[in-house]
Design a protein around this nucleic acid. Sequence first.
DNA 1: AGGCTGGGCGAAACCGCTTTCGGATATCGG
DNA 2: CCGATATCCGAAAGCGGTTTCGCCCAGCCT
Lengths: 366, 366
Amino acid sequence: MASTKSNISGRRVTRRRASININDLAERAGVAPATVSRALNGYTDIAEATRERILGLAAELNYQPSSRARQLARGRVETVAFVLPRNSRNTHDPFLSDFLDALASALSSRDHDLLVATVREDEDEIQVYRRLIAAGKCAGFIITNSRDNDPRISVLRDLNMPFVVYGRASSNVPYPHLDMDNEAAIAGMVDHLFALGHKRFAYVDLEEEATFARLRRIGFELGVRRNALLDENVAIVRVPHTSAGGQSAIATLFDGGNSHRPTAVVCPADVVAIGAIQAVSARGYAVGRDVSITGYDGVPLGAYTAPPLTTMSQPTREIGQQLVDILFRVMEGADPAQFDAVMMPTLVRRASDGSPTLVEAARALP
Amino acid sequence: MASTKSNISGRRVTRRRASININDLAERAGVAPATVSRALNGYTDIAEATRERILGLAAELNYQPSSRARQLARGRVETVAFVLPRNSRNTHDPFLSDFLDALASALSSRDHDLLVATVREDEDEIQVYRRLIAAGKCAGFIITNSRDNDPRISVLRDLNMPFVVYGRASSNVPYPHLDMDNEAAIAGMVDHLFALGHKRFAYVDLEEEATFARLRRIGFELGVRRNALLDENVAIVRVPHTSAGGQSAIATLFDGGNSHRPTAVVCPADVVAIGAIQAVSARGYAVGRDVSITGYDGVPLGAYTAPPLTTMSQPTREIGQQLVDILFRVMEGADPAQFDAVMMPTLVRRASDGSPTLVEAARALP
DNA sequence: AGGCTGGGCGAAACCGCTTTCGGATATCGG
DNA sequence: CCGATATCCGAAAGCGGTTTCGCCCAGCCT
């Protein structure tokens, strides 16, 4: 069928037309291609009987209009792009699968596709965005890991390309975004630990450009202030966003003759907290009794550390869905400035926090 | 510039042409569109001077041919699709980010895009593949989480659509794939533990359709045989592919008057092993001394459990690259049957394994 | 000088679809 | 019974590229 070019010589027979097209279908139905198009696209100026005949035939032959041709003709692009964050390399983001699934699913119910791109070693991040746009590969972007003064935001705005950001980026011009309330969440964690009786706090700051790192630290400082903690009872160390970072934070805080060891260590990420738990345990302290350690994110494995990690958990899937919702509003022409929702993560209390035992007892340890 | 329809009435001005097209560029260059196309696509029947003028102009105006129009005209589709495995929902695959990054990167260097789709709640998995194909959205598929007699494989073969599978699927017809040697890896793990002195083994089998689950169990059985373990010293339990599954496996193996507790518990996945470590520790045994527990995968957090997890680690990124390489060979017409590489994961020895202490000592515990 | 060759380029068809425009037929009112 | 109005559908012009075909003209040969 179709146009398989048979070739007696036995050389590679190629160019078989992949599938049926609108002309084939029209011919089979005994109508013009235009009529098929009308039938498939819900126009009203077509006899109901004709429409049903065509629809039936299309279903029978498993006809789907070529999305490329359709989008070209319509002058629309029904694809949204997500560029994997550069630092996602080797970062093993456990939420990405859920997040992408949510994005793809939300897009699919609007008949859009999800294009996932990456920044190759030999490229510049911004170049990737420009290339995707110039080639007309997408009609909008989902952006995560926003940094302060994120260049992507200004470029996309200049190019008049719809986008939505997960996170904030401290720009003076408003842009559509959705964020967790990092600040309130960490401050709330300090409140929680303070209420348990802790007086000596440490915070593990992140060596990371992303805005959320800054906001979480600010949240910690806010918590310090509103619980009137004494300066000499508050320490901040700054480490990479990894479990090894968590370990080295503990080394800084606990080793050496530091007489003011914290009883509560607030971490801005679960992976960091997990390293911290490991390091504190290795020093002979009981996490959750001698020392409380908290995380942020809600990674699944946090439930299986020893002790299980108390953390702030984010609703990944819902975030993905909402981002798509917002992006569509923007693509439909809504005022981008109105989208600035902030969601609150939920405290998942497991066993890495608790009332502090006597500091003296902790000090007496080897 | 271009065709912004200004509109005095103040109503929404739309239909601004997104970007410059080949006709604009041709006009600016004073040549025909065909010449621009030739210049951009490396044809030789064009004067070098003309080509350079056009290339320069294109760079200056940041012109990129519309990928949709180009692919339509060429009759090619430069997109590869990856359908997120159904069970990836809430599964928090920590490798996905790395895997996708590798795919997207390898595809990008061949000027192809990565389309990520998902199976919506209201859909059937196969439908998704059919729809993507019928709509001409992709020229090939990357398939993971293959199951025995995977229906996707037969459908794609029938439709003559190129694909490559990560994993094997026990089909009688050959198909292009790449796999880790699950069987040898787990058998090797048994060897390793046996060499450490273990005699009483348990294996945690997975309640999962995926072929790798079966192959890993077979690997265990192979290890049992070639080390001549006694039947009464070998137990197999079957649990879900989660940390909770690991916990319940330990409950089955250790609780109740079972007098033949294993000293080595081989797990077919790190998440499961992590649950098992937690459960064994909670029962008062020292993991790595009283009981050895091993995993498979190499999840990053495995390095921070207590004790750190000994496991078989897979090179995610390299797998992604190789899959793309294979897929392109197939798309170029290579015989699919020739692609059946099997790679060996590497043993990462940390601290969850060790020589067994006396079984009696373990039994004497509370 | 004239014919031939071939390099360089333009014209036009085409990819598969949408959408406007207008024509044909059926239906209705008077 | 005739013209007006609806209703339904076909023709054709795009969308933005690629590619075939053939023309034009410069350069070469004789």
